[in-house]
Write a protein that binds this DNA or RNA. Sequence first.
DNA 1: CGTAGCATGTAACAGGTTACATGATTCT
DNA 2: AGAATCATGTAACCTGTTACATGCTACG
Lengths: 180, 180
Amino acid sequence: MATEKKLDRVILGLLSHENLTGYEIKKRMDTTLHYFWSASYGSIYPTLKELLKKGYVNVTIEKQGRNKQIYQITKQGSAYLYSWLCKPIEKDELRYETLLKLFFGKEAGGEQTLIHITAFEEKVKQELPYLYMAQQSLKQHQQEDETHLYYLLTVEFGIKTYESYLEWCQYAIHVLKGVC
Amino acid sequence: MATEKKLDRVILGLLSHENLTGYEIKKRMDTTLHYFWSASYGSIYPTLKELLKKGYVNVTIEKQGRNKQIYQITKQGSAYLYSWLCKPIEKDELRYETLLKLFFGKEAGGEQTLIHITAFEEKVKQELPYLYMAQQSLKQHQQEDETHLYYLLTVEFGIKTYESYLEWCQYAIHVLKGVC
DNA sequence: CGTAGCATGTAACAGGTTACATGATTCT
DNA sequence: AGAATCATGTAACCTGTTACATGCTACG
């Protein structure tokens, strides 16, 4: 998609919190950010090179142990990140295949739609505990670092919406069971 | 992105409800589907051609009035749609720039983050009335067509989540006002 | 000693947006 | 008459994923 690339700023955001390797950045994407942003190695490493060329990051090669390239954000990188953070939000996008298949539910029938909703419910139920754990841990260490406040709000956004998903699932299952 | 294309089945789904032109399909994307799926002319028209070549749709050219190409789904198209609808959901993706900027909120500060959350709240408040209207209208005409039940559930998913967004906004604004 | 995880990277390919191009018709 | 909307389409471009390629290190 030719929609404006934001990965560079996501990476800078992560580097504004701590120095990281490409591998570690990918891990953050798969854990902390995974419910609202994602990226693969195939985009992370090239973007890191780009940021280096633009002077938005520096790299330190760790010699001892593994072949590690640890990235740090530069002053220019921080400035670029900051200016983006102050701009209005351009796009919030949700792409739920579940809703798509629900919308076309008549074609496949009530039973099939129930299967999808149940699977969706299951997935949400599996993820919620991790969000609760993150919430607890962030609440306990909130005083230590100001970033924790923002992490916490993000996590609580996830909790709120996931809880409302579950409520809706209950309702939808009830309605559909009445039909088929 | 090299993630499997689903637009073909979205279009078939829409055509399973009613015959449509490319232009009208785009309109459905911008209204009914817009909060969980989107597409531009640059992808819709080529996909329509593809579907035609595969025999999943037929086209009727309306001579009187405008130059209109009305598409109908074929038996093969229905079968293809049906088999997809019965497969498990592969991916539900949420990409909220708002959450990204919130997560990196410390870099821009509490005031700036408040601006984003307020804008987000505003956007949700603007969209909710349309969902309520759709809900009312679907409830009234529910008996007429079985598809309405599925539309209704989709709309109510939107309502539930949007309402929980608003609750979270209130909370987040309260928390952030306490800091700055 | 084998496996899981750490660690980096690239090439081929797919999928989609933006911007442009064109023209008819309806409404005010 | 002019603007808005209906209506179709394409080319350039961007972005990102998948799959492949490579090798080290820690642990059991």
